[in-house]
Nucleic acid binder design. Structure first.
Lengths: 192, 192, 192, 192
DNA sequence: AATGAATGAGGGTTCATTCAT
DNA sequence: GATGAATGAACCCTCATTCAT
């Protein structure tokens, strides 16, 4: 199923997509750096889009593993879970840049080919967070949410926004806030 | 300084950049729709990048006007100011499409030419928010921040993240949270 | 409207299409031989298909001129007209190879882009021939045709077939029949 | 000599070549539909060209059988033989799609590898028709031909032209002439 | 006898930019 | 100020063929 060549391509593609984005990474470039013929890329991946999708899938599975650990940890209360969830999510994503690329593709371009993939990811994440919120409600530590889904959407939106902001930092910001600090604002707000 | 031709180009470019993004908008396209020769674009704007920058600058000035009104409103306390700031910011940005394009370009592509532009915007925004935070501290309604800048960065990061998340909504989410709700989480957090 | 570059491209393209057919003539090749940049081809002709169409149109107009002369010659009776029509048609087409290319494109490929062009040509030719047949009927030299259109179609089909056969000759046949001889068969048949 | 795999390849190739032509049929496609590895095609057939040649040979043998029946029918005079020959030839060729592909390849492309194949077919056909013409001369029903070969070439050219014209019909012509009508023109001409 | 991985030249097309007028 | 012709590098993708297994 997976060959050395295929893996090599995937690895190189991952690096380049993560660095330059979808548009600015060319198949030529991937081929040259991977020391493979361009045709080989197309033997293993039907198109540039498919290759990109595969790259993202790979990285997402890693993220899921990490987050699942936290969600299933029975020693944590909802507040701690949420905080760790946020922190780990960001730290992992730090090493999985390509995931973010999907964000853009989905939004700014008309790349329908990403949609299915995003749906998977988003739904999975919503499940995890819902469980935490439910736990928080039972424990009485979270605000009561009349419609739990609306609350979730809002929260998820903020969390996803963080991704972008985080990667935006390096061009201009020196001392970037730690993820803990961010988590704190989300959990307790800015007011006393 | 500003001619009819120049304005026409700017207007058309704005529409197209907003709709298709930087990469997917070609100078050919702009020229054709503006009914100008391609050479004319280059007479007025040294490069595609310069044209894009000019387009965004135009839009940003509108956003600045709107936000300044709020920041200078002496009838509002910091909490209300912050809330209105967030809400108005989002509502305005909703119609400032090219600004968002910047966000993307800055993040995903290696467009160094965007940097200068973003710096302007970000610094301006930081100033405004700092004033609000200071006011909040004086009023005693905000948490004490040891290092006010770090707090600001964190907060700004979250606010900027909202932009993207907001525009991401339509493909999959039906009932999207109002900006008020988002502002509430940022101001008060999710816990009691 | 027509520039030197455009003409050069058209001329080279005509030669190559005529020699190697549509598929086997590449835009690279045309550009190289015309000593123009590939991009220039696309500046003047939106696509390979458009270029090809233009080439064919050019040659067809030449053919039309030649044939019109005969059809309007009042000194010829229908039989002579028909004979000359056939002979001139073939001689002209000999120097307008690309026309034939359309025949193939129309048939073997799904090149819808040729259809409109062919329709023009075919209808025009049908008009001319109908006039000759009518004249022949009035003169009493042609067989009576109950349905003149059916007769026309049959005849046109045979004439068009000649084109192909003619160009087929060179690979294997040495002494090829003159067009006069062909015309004779069509007019008088093979039997006494 | 012939294996199941070989046959399968041949059958699939025949369908695809007939449908899409030589150029537009890829070895990949053939391999996939035949459920064989691409390497297998090359084990059995040295090249794409060889495979194509083999496909056509197969079909031609069918055509030959049909036409031979007529030529050897001793109850027919030359005129009737000629007419039936034409009609049957066309009816059979209607289902011998790949043969027609040859016609095109020979004409429009520079496929020298087709030459040998075409020579076989053409020579065979010439033999058959020569016999008919000789018979016609002996019976006194055909015009005297000084050089019988030239007459033959002319006639064959017309017959071959029919092939193409026939298949050309569908795009624009509704009521297409029957083969009988065509044969009549060839045998008796258009004049009284 | 059969496979599937790998190749690389070539295909058509796009596009930001330059430049003579 | 304004034009449009011309450029050439880059892009994504196809495909006949080779070869080790």
């Amino acid at each position: 199923m997976s060959s050395k060549t295929r893996d090599k391509i995937l690895t190189v593609a991952s690096k380049l997509f993560g660095r330059y984005g979808f548009n600015k990474t060319s198949m030529d470039e991937i081929a040259k750096i991977a020391r493979k013929a361009k045709g080989s890329l197309y033997y293993h991946f039907h198109s540039k889009e498919v290759l990109f999708t595969e790259v993202v899938k790979r990285e997402m599975s890693h993220l899921k593993v990490e987050l699942t650990k936290i969600c299933q940890d029975e020693n944590l209360d909802a507040r701690e879970k949420l905080k760790q969830y946020i922190v780990v999510r960001m730290n992992t994503i730090e090493n999985a840049v390509n995931y973010n690329e999907t964000v853009r593709a989905d939004f700014f371009e008309h790349f329908d080919f990403i949609d299915e993939l995003r749906n998977d990811i988003d739904n999975w994440e919503k499940e995890q967070l819902r469980a935490i919120v439910v736990q928080g409600n039972e424990e009485g530590t979270f605000k009561e949410l009349k419609d739990i889904d609306v609350g979730l959407e809002t929260f998820i939106m903020l969390i996803k926004g963080m991704e972008l902001s985080y990667f935006l930092k390096d061009s201009r910001t020196q001392n970037y806030p730690s993820f803990e600090r961010v988590a704190d604002i989300l959990i307790y707000g800015v007011t006393r």
